[in-house]
């Protein structure tokens, strides 16, 4: 998969399809994380359909860009995006969290090709991404490959994140591009109440990172920010993406209670209806995918 194949309108439609898949799979699973999954659907769409160089039919292709999902609880958006890009059949999304499924509650590297690292315990993705980026930059001389990572904002409470940030800054890992899902919520409430993060831009800058802040629902901005990050050859890059938790489903938006809850049957029906008629464009009824 390479950039530029889909128009911005088509990318927006993909993101909407992915959101519908997220709702359906969470409802069926009966547990799982709605808010962060929906909130990052635009970023995942941009990454998998435009930004990253990858081959869904050959997940271990040695020329690929990588995504290290650090906040593993948003696995539904990763699985849905991977299915929509062709890593595995869409129907398999139905097996989320079921016994024997490749789609574990939190992603497991050894179960599903295309998953770079097992996650769920927060704070560990950035360091693994940094390790890979170090190998590309200093050991294997592969300047054309990039390592992306996605982190939650609450996740930034973890000390391991800042240890990794310091490491990446020291070694100027310019092939490392991190996204922060800045949705202002975590489990116990708003990030401001639980553990304030500001001055977030200043924190990353002081660790030696190039920082951009964008609207995480504007696919063009996401793609542009990634291009800019790739063009910075002297530092690692972080893109602080301001998002709305639960984006696209009005009764979930902004509400931290939806962090770790799936929609029930009626809520899912309601949510799918809202997503089908997004922006007044009526989509066909029927299966979510």
């Amino acid at each position: 998969m390479q950039g530029g194949q889909l128009t911005l309108t088509q990318l927006g439609q993909k993101a909407n399809e992915i959101r519908k898949s997220i709702i359906s799979m969470l409802e069926r699973a009966g547990s799982g994380h709605s808010a962060g999954s929906l909130g990052t659907a635009d970023i995942f769409t941009a990454l998998y359909f435009d930004i990253m160089n990858h081959r869904p039919e050959d997940p271990n292709w040695d020329g690929r860009d990588l995504l290290f999902l650090s906040n593993g609880h948003i696995a539904p958006v990763l699985y849905a995006t991977m299915a929509h890009t062709g890593y595995f059949p869409l129907e398999e999304l139905n097996t989320l969290r079921q016994f024997g499924s490749r789609l574990q509650g939190h992603p497991e590297r050894t179960r599903l090709p295309g998953i770079e690292q097992t996650s769920g315990p927060l704070g560990e993705g950035l360091g693994q991404a940094a390790g890979y980026a170090y190998a590309l930059q200093y050991l294997d001389n592969q300047p054309h490959r990039f390592v992306y990572t996605m982190m939650g904002d609450g996740e930034l409470d973890e000390g391991n994140i800042w240890e990794s940030a310091m490491f990446a800054g020291k070694y100027k890992l310019s092939q490392l591009i991190a996204f922060v899902d800045r949705n202002n919520i975590q489990i116990d409430g708003s990030t401001d109440d639980v553990m304030p993060l500001e001055d977030l831009r200043g924190k990353w800058e002081s660790f030696g990172w190039h920082v951009q802040e964008i609207d995480g629902h504007n696919i063009e901005s996401i793609i542009d920010a990634a291009s800019m990050a790739r063009a910075i050859t002297t530092k690692p890059s972080v893109i602080i993406a301001h998002t709305i938790p639960g984006k696209g489903v009005d009764f979930m938006e902004y509400d931290y209670k939806w962090h770790g809850m799936p929609p029930n049957h009626d809520q899912a029906k309601d949510a799918l209806k809202k997503l089908r008629t997004l922006d007044g464009k009526i989509n066909h009824e029927g299966e979510a995918w």
Binding site: A29, G30, G32, Q104, G105, H106, G120, P121
Partner: peptide, 8 residues
Amino acid sequence: TGADGATH
């Protein structure tokens, strides 16, 4: 631990 999986 519900369906959270091995990490949890």
